[in-house]
């Protein structure tokens, strides 16, 4: 069977005709298989949703009880038959509950990896390499200038800045699902045990992480805390909040941003960031290329991000590769819009 007969990009997303479902559809469909809880991948309004328990819980937190007609939870390593294909979930190492979806039809196996990273992350199950014929990879950081380095070193940078400017508040912009909790956990692992403050928009999801047994230490809402009390503290907030009215409650804040984009100076400066922290939940260039090579796939489909460079690289390695023109997926940090009550939060 030709791979494109198993999975095909259509307007609603990646469609599996023989299985009768879409993967991470951007429009409401009858049956959706969802890789992880970020809002560009997990949308409400589908008939039936198959995802990990964590992803389903996150969708419920964000969209309410009735986010889908019906839901089915699946474990990592569990295999399910859907129509003429079998579907198996494997950890993607991106955020809590994130999965790669292996779709097998007859003797052809395609892995749709969603968003993934091969770097260690104390808040989620590590990425698992899956042998396959066709590997569908993201390309968010698909340029050789993106090398993320060790996230622990970036957290050290943050702590050094807190020590140098004890009278200022440190505001760390971080996507509220995944990145924020990872940064908090990394701070704890680096020995920082003071209370960490949270923007209102990330309280719910952070509580959820803790309910799943991820110990994040003492967390406090930033709301209602006196300005002077916030000197020398660290607060996590959605990226868009760190440059808005909301920041006026902090004493002379140092604005940090935890993101893979921070590798490029112009990007950091454009956003008025003073302390860029290169911490990413996506694989960097070395991670992408190493993973592609290790899957043993002879064909690579490249989606959302810098497709050109990664397709070119595959071709120089003798791999069949093509960009998959899917629309509607972006970098979650770029697309996250602040909640409407943010000015008051």
């Amino acid at each position: 069977m030709r791979p494109q007969d198993i999975l095909l990009p259509v307007a609603a997303g990646l469609c599996c005709k023989p299985g009768g479902f879409h993967i991470d559809p951007v429009r409401p469909v009858e049956r959706a298989v969802i890789t992880h809880g970020h809002s560009d991948h997990a949308r409400p309004g589908h008939g039936a949703v198959l995802a990990t328990q964590e992803t389903l819980d996150m969708m419920r937190l964000r969209y309410g009880e009735n986010f889908a007609g019906s839901t089915q939870a699946i474990h990592y390593g569990e295999q399910i038959r859907l129509g003429d294909v079998t579907v198996k979930f494997h950890p993607a190492g991106h955020v809590l509950g994130s999965a790669q979806v292996a779709v097998t039809c007859e003797d052809t196996c395609i892995v749709a990896s969603g968003d993934y990273k091969d770097a260690p992350d104390p808040t989620c199950t590590p990425f698992e390499l899956v042998q396959c014929d066709v590997f569908i990879t993201e390309a968010t950081f698909g340029l050789p200038v993106f090398r993320h380095g060790d996230a622990a070193d970036e957290v050290k940078k943050l702590l050094a800045s807190v020590a140098l400017f004890p009278e200022r508040a440190h505001l760390v912009g971080a996507y509220s699902l995944g990145k924020a909790q990872r940064v908090i956990k990394l701070l704890r692992q680096a020995g920082y045990d003071a209370p960490i403050y949270l923007h209102g928009a990330m309280e719910k999801i952070t509580d959820y992480y803790q309910s799943r047994g991820i110990d994040l230490g003492e967390l406090r809402p930033a709301k209602g805390v006196k300005k002077a009390t916030l000197a020398g503290t660290i607060t996590l907030a959605p990226p868009s909040a760190t440059s808005d009215l909301w920041t006026r409650r902090f004493p002379d804040p140092v604005t940090a941003f935890a993101s893979g984009w921070m590798r490029v100076r112009a990007r950091a400066r454009q956003r008025g960031i003073e302390l860029p922290l290169v911490i990413s939940d996506h694989a960097d260039w070395d991670g992408l290329t190493a993973t592609i090579a290790a899957t043993g796939a002879g064909e690579v489909w490249v989606t959302h991000g810098q497709e050109d460079a990664l397709v070119h690289w595959c071709q120089t390695k003798g791999l069949k590769a093509r960009p998959l023109d899917l629309v509607g997926y972006g970098d979650e940090e770029e697309s996250e819009t602040p909640p409407s009550d943010e000015a008051e939060a």
């Binding site: 340029l143 050789p144 200038v145 090398r147 490029v264 112009a266 810098q306 460079a309």
Partner: peptide, 26 residues
């Protein structure tokens, strides 16, 4: 040290020669 096409794409993206070279130097 690097592939010409990859360097070109990277330089376009970063916009600064020293920075591009510093980041992508293998």
């Amino acid at each position: 040290r690097t592939d010409e096409v990859l360097f070109g794409l990277s330089y376009d993206y970063v916009g600064d020669l020293s920075e591009t070279v510093a980041l992508m130097w293998p």
